[in-house]
Design a protein around this nucleic acid. Structure first.
Lengths: 195, 195
DNA sequence: AATAAATGTTAATCTAGTTTAACATCATTT
DNA sequence: AAATGATGTTAAACTAGATTAACATTTATT
């Protein structure tokens, strides 16, 4: 393990760990580096790990029957990045996760996480809270899809994730928003004219 | 408590409870009946309970600035029905939950649930799993919004929740799908002609 | 520096779904 | 049984966003 500090800090913000528990935890996680464009999970594979990003950036996306790519989420430092549906049921993934930059991860494998839940039960609480927040975020996204125009959704994205906008090409942001790159381009030129 | 059996059965499907734990649990939950059209939570209130439906049917929705109602989910027997975002943060709710039929609930109040987590830690695991599944369902809904036409979304809804379709007026299904009632009507008449 | 590959823009045409408005049917109350 | 309110249908006119296609700019590679 080269650099477990960020994950320990993240976890300690939510639960207190004894020195012994910390040691158990470190023995069950893996440090992993991926290069830009490498896949962490591929559609159809079983997602074997939950991934915490130490540095870098990923996109989670799926490819529809027409070969069209749809981005579900971006993840950066201190975020999680997994196909949770595949992970919790250990069935084939609906999504791909690919690195947009060189990326360093901490990985919790399915089996090791089950052991950790047994040995450090308060981790159940941690992951319950993480999942609760993820659920709420996803539900908010459903709401945005419902009630905001593409322009409003773009502005919301810009405000909510200003750093991601600068790290990611515009056509991927369009894909995340569920619009075409041409239409996002039009929205941006409208916004420039408006002001 | 008139009828705690369904919630006990539900919980016991996921975790084993000792007789003592069962008693603690029962002492911390509340049985509550609502009439058709009554609100369980209102937008702006703090959602004080997580609700498990024994019988009946609810809709969760919000009203946008134009006064337009948008249904986020329906819930029926053996499902949960809460504004989880408001509940976990104990801040004002984004959503209303209203009964579409006379509805009987088991309610877990925020404070009682925290006590239950302390006294029966394995409930953390249960609620972690419940939330994981809710998250995956919500993410699937985002995907459907992205890649399916209104007609395909309607057919998916019909297949996934055949019972709900029969219990709920069509204009509410249109709202759930994010389309107008007029357009759903058109889709239905197209489907009849197609076959 | 030259070329190729990736990313971004503009504009014309098209379409899925909205809006409006009038009417039809069904259920509930008196 | 009549009347009221809730739910559902049809059709014409409209709009947000998609599609297509050609071109512009930036970045990476030789």
């Amino acid at each position: 393990m080269t650099n477990p500090q960020p994950i320990l800090e993240y976890i300690k913000k939510h639960v207190d760990l004894t020195a012994e528990e910390e040691e158990i935890l470190l023995s069950k996680i893996t440090d992993r580096r991926y290069l830009k464009n490498q896949y962490i999970v591929q559609q159809g594979d079983i997602c074997k790990t939950i991934n915490f990003i130490i540095s870098g950036c990923t996109k989670m996306f799926y490819v529809d029957e027409e070969g069209q790519e749809h981005i579900i989420m971006f993840s950066v430092e201190d975020w999680w990045s997994s196909d949770l549906g595949s992970f919790i049921t250990q069935t084939p993934a609906d999504f791909n996760i690919q690195c947009l930059e060189n990326t360093q991860l901490i990985q919790f494998s399915y089996d090791h996480l089950e052991i950790l839940y047994k040995e450090i039960p308060k981790l159940e609480r941690l992951f319950r809270k993480i999942t609760e927040r993820a659920f709420v975020a996803s539900q908010k996204r459903v709401v945005r899809n419902f009630s905001l125009s593409a322009k409003e959704q773009y502005l919301t994205f810009k405000n909510t994730y200003p750093k991601i906008e600068q790290r990611v090409p515009q056509y991927m942001i369009a894909s995340y928003l569920g619009i075409t790159k041409e239409f996002l381009s039009k929205i941006k030129s409208q916004l420039i004219q408006d002001q």
